[in-house]
């Protein structure tokens, strides 16, 4: 079993932070590759982030909070 940390992605050269707007999956759910997992508000838009792996999902970040690029947002247990 491998635990993979999902960090806040840098979606633009100038991006420093983003606000977690919505979870599309709950902790404990099974996610598949490419499944939308959360909505991230950046300076310009709201971006739907897809799961880069399949496995058991755990939410770490809180909706409404702003995080820096690289901060842990979620975990996937493979």
């Amino acid at each position: 079993m491998a635990k993979i940390m999902l960090k806040l992605p840098k979606l633009a050269v100038s991006m420093q932070e983003g606000t977690l707007r919505e979870w599309f999956v709950e902790s404990g759910a099974q996610v598949t590759l490419g499944q939308p997992i959360y909505a991230l508000e950046t300076e310009k838009t709201t971006v739907e982030i897809e799961s880069p792996f399949e496995g058991t999902f755990t939410c770490i970040g809180e909706v409404g909070e702003t995080y820096k690029v690289g901060d842990p947002i979620a975990e996937i247990l493979q």
Partner: peptide
């Protein structure tokens, strides 16, 4: 996770500005 100060939180964008 380490949230920044709450006052930095943005006002939500309208639905039509959602991208993948």
């Amino acid at each position: 996770a380490t949230p920044l100060k709450k006052q930095l939180a943005r006002t939500p964008k309208p639905d039509w500005l959602r991208v993948k």
